[in-house]
Design a binder for these strands. Structure first.
Lengths: 334, 334
DNA sequence: CTGAAAGCGCTAACAG
DNA sequence: CTGTTAGCGCTTTCAG
């Protein structure tokens, strides 16, 4: 069997409690006793059973990260960047990370609540929550520490870290306007996500500002997916009064649209200018390099993680509401 | 307080044991009793405490994944792809994933062993293990279920899933030879990694095969890093007898080298041809698109995960040794 | 088919 | 400064 606290205690001729105190630096222990215990722990190659500790202490020093389960999870650069920020901070604070992929389109959507109930984590970070997720309000009410990433809701206990999506979209569309475009289309993504709605707002704000008509045929709905956008963009390109610029609600969609434009033997940006959103890695390398609105994704992850730890340690109280800045990055596609 | 098995038992007027049996489908329970218990569990919104279950059963249904802690963890497309494969399989088998970032260059290198001892996981997957990691043999001896990814060692209990790196490198270099190149350099990466050594072998094999000299000044050592490769490649470009082709031990380095070549106002592939290794996502989008050796990274992750689960469930026994095929993908850089 | 007893390894709370 | 008692919530083992 494994070395336990009892073995150490026996060999050191003290109680298990004293060993535990040495282990956690909790409570006073005579220097000599402590040294002796430490040396015995080394000698026996003792390592605490963290499961037992968690059961007893009701803490796991683990945070769960709920991510949408997509075909190839980590290949989504948006998620990758946020996870980087989240884990960096967690690591520094000696918290462990458990990933909880959730299938948004299926029954297991509320699964993360079961995980909460199962006492596996001290807190939860949620990526890509849907606006209509009914479990969210339950989570918010429960008092369990959590932070939503890129979500925004001003009810009582909604904790979130979001970026300025409306403003970001405004920057993008206004940039197109400055470039002389008057026929600006929008590939909107899925209206299930708060962010998508915000970007829509920004898009419409600028059209209104410059008294451009909001034309329904210039707005394409779908999901945040390169292939879908690729297909759907035909609707725009087949239009008699074809747009001269397309703002896309994320970079992956922008790439899909650009591919389609090439198939039509049109040129980006000469015939049609494109702006994306997020600033994913390949945007910089694609041809033409993608003009986009940068979300500080790594920062968002970092900030979320910090906020969550503060909630767990009760340094902060709900609601936590943090907004980060977005920024236009002009490259070759406009 | 939370609903526990005891509450259910009390309300159903049975012992906790009977509830536990219903919970796990273990052992016989009268149909009616079972139904009653189930309905009470629903009514009380009961969810088992998984920590308690783990402590008692000595299983966690969690696997740990050891990844090198780099600046921006998930942004490494190699790791991302492997993780995708690993998690997909784990998920399907109802196993959870815990990430263990490890700083290779520091003391905490052996940390993953402490995690093993801490009973947090049922098994371990190791990415980017170093050849000289002294903890590996301890792990192998321990009998604890684990699989190393992209590693290869034929001692008794070494479990690994690797790809055919030697052959892959041969494909790359032979391709350059066919294209007419006789002065072929090699950006080798770090010899700490088995894979790098294998690629070196492949490189030398082809030179020998075609009776080309192995010139030390044509081999650049370093670490697997874009920036380092970028800097070090100057040594090649400054050579009087400059190579006409460079094989790089991974794609990120290849990208770094290409940048440097551009700075020298030389053209890829006209002046210097480049082949990378791995087939990371941006290789397809960079300019020129990167010729590379594809490792089936998603498959590697998937296979590793499957093998690990088989070890955990004792369907398989050590040693597990699996090799996957590599494949040349010719694009614009050669 | 059901239950009782024991224990997984640790920590909290209190007492000395 | 140290120890005792109790218990975290579940499963295993054995007995009925």
């Amino acid at each position: 069997m494994n070395v336990t606290i009892a073995d150490i205690a026996k060999k050191a001729k003290v109680s298990r409690m004293t060993v535990s105190r040495v282990l956690n630096n909790s409570g006073p222990v005579a220097f000599d006793t402590a040294e002796k215990i430490k040396s015995i722990m080394k000698e026996l190659n003792y390592h605490p059973n963290l499961i037992a500790r968690s059961l007893s202490s009701q803490r796991t020093t683990t945070i769960g990260v709920v991510i949408p389960k997509t075909e190839k999870l980590f290949l989504d650069n948006y998620i990758a960047q946020i996870l980087s920020g989240v884990t960096d901070v967690a690591q520094k604070n000696n918290y462990r990370i458990m990933l909880i992929p959730v299938n948004h389109s299926r029954d297991d959507e509320g699964d993360y609540l079961n995980f909460v109930r199962s006492k596996l984590f001290d807190g939860l970070i949620l990526l890509k929550a849907k606006t209509d997720d009914p479990h969210l309000s339950e989570l918010a009410k429960s008092g369990f520490p959590y932070v939503m990433v890129n979500y925004r809701k001003f009810g009582d206990n909604y904790n979130f870290v979001d970026s300025e999506n409306i403003k970001g979209a405004e920057l993008a569309v206004e940039h197109l306007y400055y470039k002389g475009h008057r026929k600006i289309a929008f590939v909107a993504g899925s209206m299930d996500e708060v962010n998508a709605r915000d970007r829509m707002k920004g898009y419409k704000n600028i059209l209104k500002k410059y008294k451009l008509p909001i034309r329904e045929e210039y707005i394409i709905y779908g999901d945040f997916n390169r292939v879908t956008a690729h297909e759907n963009s035909k609707k725009l390109l087949d239009l008699k009064d074809r747009p001269t610029a397309i703002f896309c609600s994320d970079d992956y969609m922008a790439l899909g649209v650009i591919e389609q434009i090439k198939k039509y033997k049109l040129s980006v940006p000469k015939d049609i200018a494109i702006v994306g959103f997020d600033n994913i890695e390949i945007g910089e390398f694609s041809k033409p390099a993608l003009t986009t609105v940068k979300q500080p994704m790594y920062e968002i992850g970092k900030t979320s993680s910090e906020a969550l730890l503060a909630l767990i340690k009760k340094i902060k109280k709900s609601p936590v509401r943090i907004m980060l800045k977005t920024e236009l990055i002009v490259r070759e596609s406009t």
